[in-house]
Write a protein that binds this DNA or RNA. Structure first.
Lengths: 239, 239
DNA sequence: CGACATTTTGAAACGAGTCAATTGGGGTGG
DNA sequence: CCACCCCAATTGACTCGTTTCAAAATGTCG
């Protein structure tokens, strides 16, 4: 009955601290013995255009979703962009419900396991259980908010802010998903390349690299390749 | 039973011609006698933070939705952006389902009428009728796709392409909503300011104005203040 | 008609993109 | 086990698009 505990809490937290929190969960399905599937690093869970059979909840690992657009111009390169990164407990495939086809590719950034929830089963289930229906709606709504915040970030923030917000969001999601641990000097291991980050943030990979270096020089973060330590959180928040 | 006719068709059309089509509909509720409400130009249908009571379908007129973010930095100006324009038959308020509060402001750009669909009624209704449930999910999914496409546009396109895509999208939505008329020299009357357009496209209003002027000089459009004629559609498509 | 908002246009400054070269790491094969 | 290769990441110099600041023109509403 109660509104979606997970998605709701996440969104409220986001609204509270201002940093775009960009994730979506789905907990009420926990009790149901859906099958799982393992996806190797670099492999696609699904591709754009494929018929939508299931929604997926990430059990472990990490995915990126990539949207492609035939450029308005036919003869120039199509626009492509990473539209999201997805960690444990987050749900994939929601954008495909409207067309019954997946609208993006979902690619594993590391060996990952997902829970498979067939849409043919999910919809009747939601008609049966009000709480589940509400949570599915809440998850989809949270995904709308997530995408809108990404748009807002791309439309209004300079590179420094985007990268800082990305790091803060990443750190927050890890805390939420796994270690509810300490506060200071959070260590992150980024599973994605600079190019992925850049694509997601609407920046070139060189700009991402430069910005990270600059943040390190100024003492906001520690940096060693894909290992990032958040040294001064408030400094990041004040970009 | 059949998947959401309207939203699905719109998304397919978008996928086909490449131009981001950015709208969402909800037709199955037509039969139900929901009440309506009139909103004057400049007035808000709802504001961010207000408890979510209803979803709204635009009957006539036009709205903009505006998202605000307390900048990651507290003392600098908050980020704000127009996240969408909404015409007849499109549904407003979907982003509020996850938190039970509206996540953005909805402001009428002209005198408008909306149909009020209380969420307390809508959810049980969707549990009753499978087609309705599916359509609601489809609408929300379409909204996710819409927001993702906006993000993609903001992340990858230069100013010319953004403005061109905006005009094409606008024209297409008018055709779909009202005049299923001719092909050549479609006349548009933009209900929003250059500043609104710029905010939506992640550009300054001066850039929007300059870009429109340039498109006129090159013969792609006719321009007279807020009146725009699409002279050479393919030229716009090839930006 | 007058006050105010919107739009247009110009010139200069800045941020991010582009091109290019170098460094570092991880994996494979000799 | 080391050498090599490939991919990722870093850094620099230069270019270009967009923003910024400013002023004038146009439109709108009371």
């Amino acid at each position: 009955m109660e509104p979606s505990v997970d998605a709701g809490a996440a969104a409220r937290r986001a609204a509270h601290n201002g940093a775009p929190t960009l994730h979506v969960r789905f907990s009420d399905a926990d009790a149901i013995p859906f099958p799982t599937r393992t996806v190797e690093r670099g492999d696609a869970l699904y591709c754009a255009g494929e018929p939508l059979r299931s929604l997926y909840t990430v059990q472990s690992g990490c995915f990126k979703t990539v949207a492609t657009f035939p450029s308005t111009d036919d003869d120039s390169a199509p626009h492509t962009q990473v539209t999201g990164f997805h960690f444990a407990n987050e749900t994939l495939g929601l954008d495909g419900v409207c067309t019954n086809r997946h609208e993006s590719d979902a690619v594993a950034l590391e060996p990952s396991v997902v829970r498979i929830m067939p849409v043919g089963i999910l919809e009747p289930l939601c008609r049966e259980y009000a709480a589940m229906q509400h949570e599915l709606l809440a998850i989809m709504s949270a995904e709308i908010v997530r995408a809108s915040r990404l748009a807002l970030m791309l439309g209004t923030m300079p590179a420094r802010e985007r990268v800082a917000a990305f790091l803060l969001d990443f750190a927050e999601r890890l805390e939420a998903g796994a270690t509810p641990a300490g506060e200071h000097a959070i260590a992150l291991l980024l599973p994605m390349t600079r190019a992925d980050i850049g694509s997601y943030l609407g920046l070139e990979l060189e700009t991402v690299s430069r910005t990270l270096s600059k943040l390190q020089r100024e003492g906001a973060i520690g940096l060693n390749g894909r290992q990032v330590r958040i040294v001064d959180r408030s400094m990041l928040e004040h970009q």
